[in-house]
């Protein structure tokens, strides 16, 4: 067994895959955890207000929150319905 292992040792193991998966996962979880907890509620209420005036779908709004060392950014993106498509 140990003899075999010695010759196989040049083979790439699964550790690099583990590291790659972890780096992606941890970065994602850190960013989602640092978001304020009111974001989903804010998104829901904003959508309700906008839907009073404009006929937009559920996924027309995206709210994202970003944080770096000296500032926090709240980005709000609303996709309005395609007007040219309506005319035809």
């Amino acid at each position: 067994m140990s003899l075999l292992d010695y010759f196989r040792s040049s083979k790439v193991g699964s550790a690099s895959l583990a590291k790659e998966r972890l780096q992606i996962l941890v970065a994602h979880e850190r960013s989602s955890l640092s978001q304020p907890s009111y974001l989903p509620q804010l998104q829901k209420e904003l959508l309700e207000v906008i839907q009073k005036y404009i006929n937009v779908g559920q996924d027309a709004i995206s709210v994202s929150f970003e944080q770096d060392e000296n500032q926090e950014t709240l980005e709000l993106n609303i996709v309005l319905p395609d007007l040219t498509a309506k005319k035809t």
Partner: peptide, 16 residues
């Protein structure tokens, strides 16, 4: 096992 690439190394864990 780290040497064989089967286990995360100290450096890997510290990087994360």
């Amino acid at each position: 096992r780290v040497k064989l690439g089967e286990m995360l190394s100290v450096d890997d864990v510290q990087d994360i």
